[in-house]
C-alpha cells in the first residue's frame, strides 16, 4: 500500500527558516505527499513553491495553544486562505473545554468554520491534555460545528497520538468526520496501525524524518 497520499508533511517549530520551508515543499513534491502543514507566516511562500503541484498547503491557526481569542483565530484563518492555504487546522479552546463552557467551545469552532466556507477545517483536540470523557465531548462539539477532520495532537504538548485515543475518536464520530493522527508517528509500521483503525491522514514530522532517516514512511 502506498501511504504517501495520506501524509501531511509537517514543520511547525518556531525557528523554522525560509530555507527549511523550501526543503519541506520540495520533499513533499518528490514523495507525492498529500500536503505540507506549516505556521501561517509561511503560507504565501509555500503556496508559491507548490504552484502547479497537487500538494496542498495546510495552515495551523491559534497554534499550538488554541488560547487566542475567537476573533483572532477567524482573522488568522481568513488571512491564511487569502495567502493560499487550502486547509485550516485550528486548535480547540482547551480552557473553555476544561471549564465545561461548551457553548464557547462550539462558538470558537463554528465562527472559524463559517468564515472559511468550503475550505477544509480540521480541529486539533490535544488528546494528551484530555480524559476520555473530554475527548468524547470535544468530538461531539466538533460534529455540531460540522468540521471536516478531527486531529489528535499539536506535537507541542506532552504527548502525541495514541491508538487508544484514536479508537475513542473513531467510535464517537464514526464516519461523520475524518481523522488525522499526529505527533510521535515516525515510521511506516506505526502509520499503518493508525490507518487500520480508520485514520485518513498522518501528520508526519519533517524533523523526525531527518533525524532518523530510516523513518520515511513510503511503501
Amino acid at each position: 500500500m502506498n501511504i504517501s497520499k495520506h501524509i501531511e508533511y509537517t514543520l511547525l517549530k518556531p525557528t523554522t527558516t525560509e530555507r527549511e520551508i523550501i526543503d519541506l515543499c520540495y520533499e513533499a513534491i518528490q514523495n507525492d505527499y498529500y500536503g505540507v502543514c506549516i505556521n501561517s507566516s509561511y503560507v504565501a511562500l509555500a503556496r508559491q513553491l507548490l504552484e502547479n503541484s497537487p500538494t496542498k498547503v495546510c495552515s495551523v491557526v491559534g497554534f499550538p495553544f488554541g488560547a487566542m481569542s475567537t476573533d483572532a483565530k477567524v482573522f488568522e484563518a481568513k488571512k491564511a486562505i487569502e495567502d493560499g492555504a487550502e486547509e485550516i487546522e485550528m486548535v480547540i479552546n482547551l480552557g473553555f473545554l476544561k471549564s465545561k463552557n461548551y457553548v464557547s467551545v462550539l462558538k470558537d469552532i463554528s465562527d472559524v468554520k463559517m468564515a472559511i466556507g468550503n475550505t477544509t477545517l480540521k480541529v486539533i483536540l490535544e488528546i494528551s491534555e484530555l480524559n476520555k470523557n473530554e475527548i468524547i465531548k470535544a468530538c461531539e462539539i466538533c460534529l455540531d460545528a460540522n468540521v471536516d477532520f478531527i486531529k489528535t495532537s499539536s506535537g507541542f504538548s506532552k504527548g502525541g497520538a495514541t491508538l487508544t485515543a484514536t479508537k475513542i475518536i473513531k467510535k464517537t464520530i464514526k464516519d461523520a468526520a475524518k481523522i488525522t493522527a499526529s505527533g510521535d508517528i515516525e515510521d511506516l509500521e506505526t502509520s499503518m496501525k493508525y490507518l487500520e483503525v480508520g485514520v485518513h491522514r498522518i501528520g508526519f514530522n519533517a524533523l523526525l524524518n531527518k533525524k532518523t532517516k530510516k523513518a520515511r514512511p513510503i511503501s
Binding site: S40, V61, A67, M68, A80
Partner: peptide
C-alpha cells in the same frame, strides 16, 4: 500575542492585538 511560537502571520498578530 502570537504566543508562544511567534510564527503566525504579521496581519494575524496585528488583529489579535486590536481585539485584545
Amino acid at each position: 500575542v502570537g504566543f508562544p511560537l511567534g510564527a503566525m502571520s504579521t496581519e494575524a498578530k496585528v488583529y489579535e492585538t486590536i481585539q485584545a
